[in-house]
Amino acid sequence: MLMDSKKLEELVKKYWNCETSLEEEQQLREYFRGGNIPESWRETAALFRYFDEQKSKTTDSQFDETVLASIKKMPARKEGRVVKWVAASMRIAAGVAVLLAAIYFVRQELRSDTAMASAEDTFEDPQQAFEETKKALLMISKGFGRAEQQAKKINMFNEAQEKVQTTESEL
C-alpha cells in the first residue's frame, strides 16, 4: 500500500498520541509490512512488524483435541448433583442439630423448674399445708375483690355511654 511520507509521518505521530483509530493502526501495520522502508523509519517499522508477527503465534495442532477430550471427561452435571445433594443434606443436618439442641435446653430448663417448685411447696404436716393453701386462696380472692371494684368503675362508663346513646336515638 502506498502512502506518502507526509501522511505516514502524521499517522505515526497520531499513533504515539493514541489518537489513531483501529483502521489507521491497521494501515500502519500494512505499510510497514512491505519492503523499501526508508532507513529513518527502521525502528518504527520494527515495532509494527513485531506486532504483526506476534499475531501469527498459535497454539499447537493438538490443542483442540486435548481440550475437547478433557471437557468430555468432565462428569456432565453429575458432579453438580452430588454437590447439591451434599449441600442439601448438610442443611437438613444443621436444622436437626439446632432442633435437638433446642429440645435439650428446654427440657433442662423444665426439669430444674419443677425440681425447685416441688422442693419449696412440700409440707410435711397436712395441717400446715391446709393453712398455706387457705392463705394462698385468700390472697387470690382478695385480688379478685379488688379487680371487681375496678371493673365497677368501668361499668360506670358503660352506663354513661348507654345513656348518651339512648338520648341520641330519642332525638
Binding site: Q54, K55, K57, T58, T59, F63, D64, V67, L68, I71, K72
Partner: peptide
C-alpha cells in the same frame, strides 16, 4: 453442548494463548 462450545468459545484459543503467553 459441545457444538456450541466449538463455535462460540474455542475459536478464541489463539488470542487467549497469545495473551497468556
Amino acid at each position: 453442548d459441545i457444538e456450541a462450545f466449538q463455535n462460540r468459545v474455542l475459536p478464541a484459543k489463539n488470542k487467549l494463548f497469545r495473551f497468556a503467553l
